[in-house]
Simulated scan of single mutants.
Amino acid sequence: MTDYATDFSPGEMIVTAGARQLENNKVIFAGTGLPMVGITLAQLTSGPGIIPVFEAGAVGPTLDRGLPLSVGDSRTTSRANYIQGLNSAFELTQRGFIDIGFIGGAEVDPYGNLNSTMIGDFPQNYMKPVVRLPGSGGAGDMSCSCTYTILIVQHEPRRFVEKLQYCTSMGHMDGSKDARKKAGLQGKGPKRVITTKALMGFDDETKRMKILATMPGETVQSVQDATGFELMVDKDVYEFAPPTQTEIKLIREVIDPTQIFCKR
């Protein structure tokens, strides 16, 4: 019998869900923040053969020197297979060697397009936005070239919007047939969206976001109520299993004991 935890935060739930979506022996390009926690948790549980790639150029580190604060942190180089810089990391992506890009953002639309640039009227207020966000970093390139992307986003109506205020990273664009191919993008686009309320995928035909599973304590209706657009619902929607005691212990005691990214 699985020893599930009963005391966990939304951040710990989203990280656990993220880790469980990462297949062993895959090459995964990691964004800053929760994706790094998710990759580390996966390496310590079901995916010891996962090969992380970081924007600053480290390929295949184990992250055993403590949680990096960013993708340029020296701790991303711990026991790396090799380190050849930013250009080398993105060359791998453009040549099709990255299986999954694991990224986040401030806004996401029904087709998995992401905004991590600005909040405010674009283009007139681009230089003086209401909020200046961190920007693309490498996420724009990852969304274009990785075989698939997995998005990890806090679930709030202001984040899940019908229309982005700025498109930083391409998802399925407008959802039309072969939209990505026509735009010259080699990757297949977002495969999963992991939030504090649900695990979601995309409809094969329309490319619109759909609920695959609800997080513990949530329902299809509560997920929809926290979303600024109409979600599709998979016919086999299920309740996602909560974190195990082992997963929570690893997050709290090994991966992020100072709560840099997983607040409690």
Rank of each mutant, 00 (worst) to 15 (best):
D3K: 12
S9A: 07
P10G: 07
G11Q: 13
E12C: 11
E12V: 08
V15M: 01
T16H: 07
G18T: 06
N25I: 10
N25K: 15
K26L: 14
G31A: 06
L34A: 12
V37C: 13
L44A: 07
A56Q: 15
G57F: 02
V59W: 05
L63K: 04
D64T: 10
P68F: 01
V71I: 12
V71L: 05
T77I: 14
S78V: 12
R79C: 09
A80F: 03
N81S: 13
N81M: 14
F90N: 08
F90W: 11
E91N: 15
I100E: 06
E107D: 06
V108T: 08
G112Y: 03
N115A: 01
N115C: 05
T117M: 10
T117H: 12
N125H: 14
V131P: 11
R132E: 15
G135H: 07
G137I: 04
I150C: 01
I150W: 03
P157A: 08
P157R: 14
P157D: 10
Q165W: 09
C167T: 13
H172T: 01
M173C: 12
G184Q: 05
G187W: 04
K191S: 12
I194G: 01
A198Q: 02
D204I: 12
T206D: 02
T206Y: 04
K210M: 15
Q224N: 11
D225W: 04
G228S: 02
F229C: 05
V233A: 10
V233Q: 08
D234Y: 05
K235T: 13
E239R: 09
T244M: 03
I251F: 00
D256N: 01
